[in-house]
């Protein structure tokens, strides 16, 4: 596992305490897991995603990610309807390890309440939380 200083956390994303990231893109929000989450999980071998059209509340479980060590749940950073899923992850789950913020994105949602985005942590707040966990 890497030191937090060795991991990348883009400035233009928002983060959750469960280590998902969210990125506003016009009317929709893209969601994935952070570099810290993929590093903790280790090599990811399977990602289970919902169907387009499913709706979830904020904090709802939208899927699971399976690494060689364990299966972990994925939680919605905000409530909304699934507008798209990253189908490429079915054949190349390693994208979540190699490129967690780009090719490794998981779902795109139409948020129920767009204001929930601003309530998420920014990079500084997320890094503070991670450093708190380490000590």
């Amino acid at each position: 596992m890497k030191e937090i200083s060795e991991l990348t956390f883009p400035d233009d994303l928002r983060y959750t305490k469960d280590h998902e990231w969210a990125k506003q893109d016009g009317d929709t929000i893209k969601i994935g897991i952070s570099a810290y989450a993929q590093d903790q999980l280790g090599d990811i071998v399977f990602v289970e995603l919902p169907a387009v059209g499913d709706t979830f509340d904020k904090g709802g479980e939208f899927g699971t990610v399976e690494s060689v060590k364990a299966v972990s749940e994925l939680y919605m950073p905000m409530g909304g309807e699934i507008a798209a899923i990253n189908e490429a992850l079915e054949d190349t789950p390693e994208s979540v390890n190699n490129a967690p913020y780009t090719d490794g994105w998981m779902i795109e949602i139409k948020p129920g309440d767009p204001d929930e985005y601003n309530a998420l942590m920014d990079k500084a707040a997320y890094l503070d939380m991670l450093k708190g966990q380490e000590s």
């Binding site: 090599d43 071998v45 399976e66 060689v68 789950p93 390693e94």
Partner: peptide, 10 residues
């Protein structure tokens, strides 16, 4: 030696 558990699972 160490098996490639990742490749085996993927």
């Amino acid at each position: 030696r160490r098996l490639d558990e990742t490749l085996a699972a993927r």
